[in-house]
Design a protein around this nucleic acid. Structure first.
Lengths: 342, 342
DNA sequence: ATTTTCCGTGTAAGCGCCTACATTTTGCAG
DNA sequence: CTGCAAAATGTAGGCGCTTACACGGAAAAT
């Protein structure tokens, strides 16, 4: 026990019980908001607790069968604005519900998903939030085998067997493309995200659908592959602009790539939006601090995080409710990176 | 217990013991790497455990006096690249040590630091990592009252009474300034970070010291106040460039602000680095994906995170070691945003 | 006033694991 | 072989808390 010398000083439920002249069970009841405690004793207990500085010991509480009030968050990493926004939402909502969050990264235990998940499930978290692009179906399988509550954020379960939160990716892309078309653009290029990703694929489809709906042929040479990261947006812009008939607008499947596009365009000596229009997707905070400000499709990341938490807590409370999929609306945010075609 | 139906399925130490034909104590010994277990039984236990899919129950382990293998991370939020880098380092090192991390944000329990810390200390974490700019001294006081192990990252304890990790902010700023001077610049402006922040103040001092060392007078109108965020870098650039004798180089106290400066400069129709040189500080990932690539002072953020973890684990293992302060070297990273003065 | 409820509280038995101590087994000198 | 120390393993108690159950007393019903 060298690890926690403070153990000796820890105020337990017994100390409070003694101070308040009741049994430990009563103290427990008070702190768990059980209703069968007389108001006067409840207050006596509360006061004693406050005076002694009592703070419940979580592990004991969980072990004894209480609720853990901790949920796990599994992510590949925190190193991008997209993730940070979602996590912010999660944190806020968790705060309201008085839950803590423990962070797991897929970086760890690479390969051995099964035991990692098993480990997580057996640990302190009562449930798991997954923000894992390119989620392997194996994960879901294991998770449901474990009968462990979880929610997918910005990712869906093809089997429709999981709680999940995502956004109207198709519609968002459709709207943005239509906006560009409305501005008079006909030569609209699209930089794709990571192929295979649900969100990414939907965006391509939305883009194509809008073109078709307006009788504009889909040109394959206008559709290039990116990876959702800034450098890919930058790199892919040059070949696009080197085309015999270069596009007059570029729609990047996310803001990070759009930022890269802007860099490339500037490097080509062209002006945004006068020479070319650019649209992104996500509306990360940075989108509104660039110059010109980026027109983009807002994906309610923070809200997705929040709803994810709600869905998880709901599961914890009512374990038997059937899985639900929540799809939040995106919204076109018009800023300064587009202009009507002359 | 509606919260965890899986409880019934949980494989306990007893199951393993039975399967291996030993007592639970022996199983415990095996999993705690105690040395007085015969090799043959150790293996028998391990095999049984593997077969049953045994995973230790953390709360029970902690409760019984074992090590928690969880540390807490207290941050204001995750929403910037600086923090993300540090957290990445923390995560990596924690992974090596087989520790988990639980995330606490100062956003929660605004105001009531004392009880929040008390809560944290009484929770599952064995120690706390603080990445809290503008840390109130009150925090430290409470923490040491609690005799709770903690490490400060990129922040120092004036009393020198805490374990902490930071970087050579003064030297880094000195080096960068000297580099600019070496390039022939004499009119070098500086955009400060958040005043009051240890790191920020040191950087100003380093900048001033370099100027003085080279006999260049420190001009107050060249030193403006920022807040470490991109918009402030952008905003503060305009008045600077509107000066009767505008600077030929701008040194921003961090990369985020430098990015803002670059935006502003471009908006003024000037070229980087031909018309003006720019230097940042931190070397966040983005610094190398801008165009031109940003010359900056590398602050080993990831490593700071890692060392922070090391220091914390060290404390957990040897509770009586006196506090240490670890200062990691910064390094000037020359890229493309500076040019010799014509 | 007496019986029936029900409310408020205490008692006790764990939750899964660790560890001091007791006990058995092993290794080895004599 | 015997004896004994050392190594290996088992036993039991406890970590702080929750919760089924028991129980006394007060309120409600008759």
């Amino acid at each position: 026990m060298q690890e926690r010398k403070k153990a000796s000083q820890q105020v337990t439920i017994y100390d409070v019980a003694r101070a308040a002249g009741v049994s430990d069970a009563t103290v427990s009841r008070v702190f768990n908001n059980k209703n069968n405690v007389r108001e006067s004793t409840r207050e006596r207990v509360l006061q004693a607790a406050k005076k002694l500085g009592y703070v419940a010991n979580l592990q004991a509480r969980i072990l004894a069968g209480g609720k853990s009030h901790i949920i796990g968050l599994l992510v590949p990493g925190l190193d991008n604005a997209y993730m940070a926004e979602i996590v912010r939402g999660i944190d806020i909502e968790l705060g309201h519900a008085n839950y803590e969050m423990i962070l797991y990264t897929t970086r760890r235990r690479g390969g051995n998903e099964a035991s990692y998940l098993q480990y997580i499930a057996n640990s302190l978290s009562a449930g798991l939030l997954l923000v894992v692009p390119l989620l392997s179906p194996k994960y879901l399988e294991i998770l449901s085998d474990l009968e462990y509550p979880y929610v997918l954020i910005d990712e869906i379960d093809e089997q429709n067997n999981s709680f999940s939160v995502d956004a109207t990716n198709w519609q968002g892309a459709y709207d943005a493309t239509e906006y560009l078309i409305g501005l008079g653009h006909r030569r609209i290029a699209f930089i794709k995200g990571i192929v295979g990703l649900h969100s990414s694929d939907d965006r391509v489809q939305g883009y194509k659908a809008a073109l078709k709906a307006h009788g504009i042929p889909v040109r394959d040479d206008y559709i290039v592959e990116g990876d959702y990261m800034q450098p890919s947006g930058y790199d892919k812009t040059f070949p696009l602009m080197a085309l015999p008939t270069p596009p007059t607008a570029i729609f990047a499947a996310n803001d990070h790539m759009a930022l890269g596009v802007m860099d490339a365009i500037r490097e080509l000596g062209m002006d945004i939006p006068n020479d070319i229009s650019i649209v992104g997707f996500d509306d990360i905070p940075q989108a509104s601090t660039t110059h010109p400000k980026l027109t983009t499709v807002l994906q309610p990341l923070e809200q997705m995080g929040r709803e994810g938490v709600r869905l998880l807590l709901e599961q914890l409370q009512y374990p038997d409710r059937p899985p639900r999929r929540l799809t939040l609306p995106t919204q076109l945010i018009v800023r300064d990176s587009c202009r009507p075609l002359a």
